[in-house]
Measured scan of single mutants.
Amino acid sequence: CHSECLGNCSQPDDPTKCVACRNFYLDGRCVETCPPPYYHFQDWRCVNFSFCQDLHHKCKNSRRQGCHQYVIHNNKCIPECPSGYTMNSSNLLCTPCLGPCPKVCHLLEGEKTIDSVTSAQELRGCTVINGSLIINIRGGNNLAAELEANLGLIEEISGYLKIRRSYALVSLSFFRKLRLIRGETLEIGNYSFYALDNQNLRQLWDWSKHNLTITQGKLFFHYNPKLCLSEIHKMEEVSGTKGRQERNDIALKTNGDQASCENELLKFSYIRTSFDKILLRWEPYWPPDFRDLLGFMLFYKEAPYQNVTEFDGQDACGSNSWTVVDIDPPLRSNDPKSQNHPGWLMRGLKPWTQYAIFVKTLVTFSDERRTYGAKSDIIYVQTDATNPSVPLDPISVSNSSSQIILKWKPPSDPNGNITHYLVFWERQAEDSELFELDYCLKGLKLPSRTWSPPFESEDSQKHNQSEYEDSAGECCSCPKTDSQILKELEESSFRKTFEDYLHNVVFVPRKT
């Protein structure tokens, strides 16, 4: 048989008469490798580009789960590009990614509803959504962080984005990388972005840091009482949809009607710091009717980097990364020049730590249904340095008659930039024990000054392991946590139920 035959053949030295091919099969003959313009397919066939392209389009058009959109890589027609490569849609070739590779997620039936953290986790790592997304989240724990972890990498949506009755959302900033909504599939009414009845939605994105392009379709905003109209108009300008909307697409009466839409800028007039305090004062603000001013709200939190936005980490279910302080308005003076500047002394802060701070007014709604208010920009203030805590785990070892090696770990709280350490030492008198000992005694162990690591005695271990207080009263049991108490109650309830079950099964009433 021919060298490319495997198993047997019907005619000697003829690659077209093989029972099976050793390498690849091409047009009725066995070959060692697939010549151009053919590609290896499933490690035994040679196919042309049209064959591989037909497989790709067949799966793409069917949208069946589990099928493969075949691509070409290293002269092979394979189910998908290997790690580190992405497909070129024009020629199906796998090309190296520039940075992290995109991950295209194809949605069944063309859309997916995100109504819980669990459903959001199914899209973790996706960068391109081939379909439409509907966000409908009523509640949950730590929602802002969970949504950002699972949806934060999405850069492109081919269909539309719909935010509907998501009472738990305060902001859409968890879509931190969303840059493009194509609108290839539109919501009824030709809408590519749809926001309806979101009672706590206050911000779409921080438009000073976020760009969003909507290729096709219109915007729809109705019944978002805490979303200011200025935020919607800003989205029109940034996304390129200005002029597409009709009169009733953006409701003037049901958007922002319960919001404090600040239209003035508060400026800080005085800032002073110490290692654990920050004193702030800002310019006074009074609405047209000074009785509408209820006070100020001061927001602050630790910020290692200057990239904080107002609604980071917030949701309507209680999660809030900001510390909020309510401040009463100052006494009002008739003389504008003698107006008191409101302020606040922030206490209990960490030394040498940068804080993000902003302040906003708290006002009631005027009778004319106009909203007044003022808010400052987010500023960054760093507390002063102070003395560091003591170095940890000092170790001293003498390696000769004239040297001592000293080692330690950095302090747990540096409280500033540590530039150097101060080492103090003092000579001590020799131990009298060394002169009084009889060095001729056998088995004498000389006193040693070398360091030995501390260890816990058996008594201390027994005390720590004991669940009861000892007789001397030195140790006591740790208080039980809520989960331990709940577990004990469940076990007790189970024992009672099981005992009742045994009584009912074992003891049967005697027939009379």
Rank of each mutant, 00 (worst) to 15 (best):
L345Q: 09
S401D: 08
F311P: 13
D206V: 09
L266V: 07
L169I: 12
L169P: 09
L227T: 06
T361V: 14
S192G: 14
I134M: 08
L172D: 00
R124H: 15
K112Y: 14
I404A: 03
T254W: 12
Y194H: 11
L392T: 04
N307M: 05
E184V: 14
L349R: 02
W352P: 00
G189V: 13
L219W: 14
V397A: 03
F358R: 12
I137G: 14
D257A: 02
N141M: 09
Y300E: 01
V324G: 11
K337W: 14
Q245L: 04
L204I: 10
R165M: 12
V381H: 05
L169T: 07
S401M: 06
R176Q: 14
I271K: 15
K267I: 15
F193P: 00
K242I: 12
L201P: 00
N255T: 04
D292M: 14
I405L: 10
E368K: 13
T127A: 05
C105Q: 00
N334V: 13
S389Y: 09
E310Y: 15
C317R: 02
N334K: 11
W344I: 12
N198C: 00
D328L: 13
L362Q: 03
N334W: 10
L227E: 00
R244K: 13
A120D: 01
S171V: 03
Q314K: 01
R370G: 14
Q314R: 15
G343N: 10
R247C: 04
N340R: 03
N200V: 13
G217A: 02
V359L: 12
D115Y: 04
P351A: 11
K277G: 15
R291V: 14
R347C: 07
F290R: 08
Q199N: 11
R244V: 14
F174C: 14
E231R: 06
L345T: 03
E368I: 12
S116Q: 02
L107Y: 03
A145T: 15
E122K: 11
G240L: 15
P288W: 06
E264V: 04
S338T: 13
T386G: 04
T386Y: 13
I188K: 05
L345H: 03
K409S: 08
K234E: 14
I278R: 00
L186Y: 07
Q382A: 11
L298E: 00
T127S: 08
L186E: 05
S158L: 12
C317P: 06
E146L: 02
D289W: 14
K409M: 01
W207T: 10
K242P: 11
S274I: 03
N340V: 09
V238T: 07
K234H: 15
R291P: 15
E187Y: 03
S171N: 13
S376K: 01
N387Y: 02
N150L: 05
H106W: 13
L151P: 00
E302V: 02
I129L: 11
W205G: 08
G256M: 11
A303S: 09
R124L: 07
T113S: 12
T273D: 02
L294D: 04
L345K: 04
D115W: 04
I114K: 00
L186S: 12
T215I: 15
R164M: 13
S402I: 05
P394R: 04
A168M: 05
R281P: 00
Q245R: 04
K162G: 15
E156W: 11
F311G: 08
L186F: 05
P391E: 00
K350T: 06
N211R: 10
V397H: 15
K253D: 03
K267C: 05
W286I: 00
S166G: 07
D206C: 09
I154Y: 00
E187V: 06
W282N: 01
K267F: 04
L265R: 13
E184F: 10
G313C: 04
F268T: 03
I134L: 12
G343Q: 09
E237I: 07
F268H: 02
W408K: 00
Y270R: 02
Q121A: 04
Q216S: 05
Q382P: 04
S274C: 05
L298K: 00
K253W: 15
F174Y: 09
E368V: 15
F220S: 03
I379Q: 14
R182H: 08
L153H: 04
I214Q: 12
D249T: 10
D289Q: 08
A195T: 05
N399H: 12
L143P: 03
G189F: 07
S239D: 02
F358Q: 14
Y300L: 04
Y372Q: 03
I232N: 00
R164P: 07
D115V: 02
E264S: 05
Y300T: 13
T241L: 11
I154V: 09
L293K: 04
R179Q: 10
W344E: 07
A374T: 07
F296M: 06
L186R: 10
K350I: 08
R202Y: 15
N320R: 14
S171A: 09
W352D: 13
L186V: 04
P410L: 06
Q121G: 02
S158F: 10
N263H: 04
L252W: 11
N198H: 01
W286L: 14
L147R: 00
D292W: 13
T213Q: 14
L298P: 00
E187S: 06
N387L: 11
Y305N: 00
H341N: 09
S319P: 07
S260K: 05
P410E: 06
I214E: 00
L133W: 00
Q382M: 04
D384R: 13
Q314P: 01
S274E: 06
N200L: 06
V325R: 05
T309F: 12
G152I: 00
A145E: 08
A145G: 13
S158R: 05
W207P: 06
G152M: 02
Q199V: 13
N136I: 03
T254R: 09
H341L: 07
K103R: 12
T185L: 12
D315I: 03
L280T: 15
Q306E: 04
K234F: 08
S400A: 15
H106M: 13
L265Y: 13
A149F: 15
Q199P: 06
R176W: 01
S389A: 15
R124Q: 04
K253I: 10
A385M: 14
W286V: 11
E155L: 09
R179S: 09
K242M: 10
R369Q: 13
A259C: 09
T113K: 15
F311T: 14
S166W: 00
K350R: 14
P336Y: 00
Y223N: 11
G159P: 00
I137F: 04
S389M: 15
F311V: 03
P342S: 06
